[in-house]
Design a protein around this nucleic acid. Sequence first.
DNA 1: TCTGGGGTCCTAGGACCC
DNA 2: TCTGGGGTCCTAGGACCC
Length: 394
Amino acid sequence: MQPPRTILHVDMDCFYVSVERLHDPSLVGRPVIVGGPPNSRGVVASASYEARAFGVRSAMPCSQAHRLCPDAVFVSSGHGRYSEYSRKVAEALRTMSPLVEMASQDEAYLDMTGTERLWGSPVQMGERTREAVRRETGLPCSIGIGPNRMVAKIASGLCKPAGMLWVPAGCEAEFLRPLAPGEMPGVGTKAQERLRALGIGTIGQIQDLGAEGCRQLFGPHGEELWRRACGESSAVVGHDEAVKSVSNETTFDRDSADAEFLAGVVAHLSEKVGGRLRAAGLLARTVTLKYRYAGFETHTAARTLDAPTCDDRVLRRTALELLESRRTPDRPLRLLGVGGTNLLAEGEGQLDLLGAPADDEKRRKLLGAIDAVRDKHGFSAVQTAASRREEERG
DNA sequence: TCTGGGGTCCTAGGACCC
DNA sequence: TCTGGGGTCCTAGGACCC
């Protein structure tokens, strides 16, 4: 039996709102909603606690948020600031432990095992971590502490905002007992519905079923569910892993079945994906297209290429062929997405070693030049005719 | 009420190969 | 004529997370 670990889960408090408040202090103390404009098709990305008091939640349509809280200040997201602050948070956290895993832009796991001499008790570790984040970024966070990732994460969720909660080793099961199953990561709306239909409304009820009971009720994954309900989780805190897919998608302001418009959107998205692949030094072997009809019916289509690519033109041609062969022509679409999966690091592909034809070399230089201009002047500085037309409409 | 955009992981069927 | 078992890859859809 190994000695228990000490895991911290650091969760930034309404991250986007807090970042916006640093840049515009007049937002402090007011209900703030970061997301799309109130009458757009956007959803709430982050809401301040003043807005949450009116029932506003993240992922809620902006129009609904506006109805619930008419006085809220709507701030459009995506100034590119958030990644910058996310990096600062990561830097601050790495001064506390070498084992830091950013789970997303606004949350991280730290394995603090063995740092007691340096930082003191788990609660002192938490205090000092919060101080480090505040000092380096000016941003508030909540901290959950437990013997594993899952318990630490649930703890941080319960003590928000600006809170701290420590669940000592051995107390996991008692801590989880009264909570709703949905508090467990991985148990979403669908799973919770199924549990509710069985009369299960607390994690304690899952514990009481026992390993065997859970297996009978939930099949092969039942035992895993039971173990997690008891507070066991073996996932270690690791370093950030390689990306597995790169995609861009967009919902139109109004639904459209116009072939030329749709082709323009596909071109635009393909250029974005291609640019991101090249910036990351990646090649995609599979191109995916996502399309959603007006009624929200969503489909994906994929094609695996003979040769991996990061070329906008290949991405566009493939996505366009998929779109035109699959979609029902007169049915309006509300969303299109283009993505690359099955990724290889550039140079990993063996085909390149055979010597690229001169044409490919020319193309590569052109794309390199485009990327350089975009680096300096922004994405819109260079676009194909088709994607330019699309941008002008939108 | 009317549903963003970026991801990860899982499942399941079919093709194909040995 | 009736028919294996295992493995991998591809594709589509869906649950879930922030």
